[in-house]
Design a protein around this nucleic acid. Structure first.
Length: 273
DNA sequence: CTCCAGGTCCAGA
DNA sequence: TCTGGACATGGA
């Protein structure tokens, strides 16, 4: 399958820490799962090649997964007119926020707390290999809910094992209905997610942004804290809470996208932290 | 050995 | 409301 993508950056999208299930193979090809289909992905200029290895996948599903129908002109207006953000715009134009499965987003970001990307990817792979029907697909909540804490600890979950187990049970039981969250506004849905043990502000924001397309969410992790402190607070001491309030007020419905460009920029070194 | 990683929880001001 | 320390695990 070949898709014309005039405004898309596959590498920035998959390498910016929003998904943990894609691995880079040789010659800039990515392997991963989109809506239960195993795919290989590569991009040459304005053409995205989707090689479906297993399962079925429509072009519309790919468009949906990569948020390709989202007009980013409002975002580009912000990035292009703020001199502090211009570098991220130049470097990553076409980076899009993937529409992940909500349960996978919740689970992976529970795992992400006080952890590093390599280990998050590894733990996710361990979960898929051990509990899922197909090797690279993220396991259903039921498949994890049936296990015990010790089984999860063996996969490297550490002290997060009970968090993931409880989350899986609640979701499997239908206590986190995606439809329900989808209908709630940002504040309500965030409070609902934060009822889960192991889900604080940051994990809730990531889940809402990456799993529920609540674009006003602005996850503040150590990198965002650092880069925002430098760019907008003259390197003066500022709390995560203040950074979040400032950013959500300044960027509104584009906050989540701005955050993703800032995060990838901070980690790539373009802001010289 | 110490420090850190897309934080969160808990206790004590 | 805000701050400091503990927390599994593994790599640097």
């Amino acid at each position: 399958m070949k898709i014309h993508v005039p405004d898309f950056n596959l590498e920035a999208t998959l390498d910016s820490g929003q998904v943990f299930g894609f691995t880079k193979l040789e010659n800039r090809t990515y392997e991963g799962v989109i809506r239960n289909a195993l795919v290989h992905l590569s991009q040459r200029d304005g053409c995205l090649t989707v090689d479906v290895k297993e399962g079925k996948l429509s072009e519309a599903a790919v468009q949906n997964f990569f948020d390709l129908n989202h007009n980013l002109s409002a975002l580009y207006e912000i990035l292009g007119t703020d001199t502090r953000l211009a570098r991220a715009y130049q470097a990553f134009k076409g980076l899009r926020i993937v529409r992940q499965d909500p349960w996978e987003a919740l689970a992976c970001f529970i795992i992400s707390s006080n952890n590093n990307i390599k280990r998050i990817q590894k733990i996710r792979a361990n979960l898929s290999r051990t509990f899922s029907v197909s090797a690279l697909a993220f396991p259903k909540p039921e498949a994890i809910a049936d296990r015990n804490e010790e089984a999860l600890r063996k996969l490297g979950l550490g002290y997060r094992a009970p968090f993931l187990l409880e989350a899986a049970k609640k979701v499997a039981r239908g206590q986190l209905s995606s439809n329900q969250i989808q209908k709630m506004n940002y504040t309500e849905s965030k409070a609902e997610l934060m009822r889960f043990l192991g889900v604080g502000e940051k994990v809730a924001d990531c889940t809402l942004l990456f799993g529920f397309q609540k674009y006003e969410a602005f996850p503040v992790d150590v990198w965002i804290h650092r880069v925002m402190k430098k760019l907008y607070f003259r390197n003066r001491r500022v709390s995560e809470r203040k950074v979040q309030e400032f950013s959500r007020k300044r960027w509104g419905q584009a906050a989540g996208y701005v955050q993703q460009y800032l995060y990838h920029g901070a980690k790539s070194g373009i802001f010289e932290l």
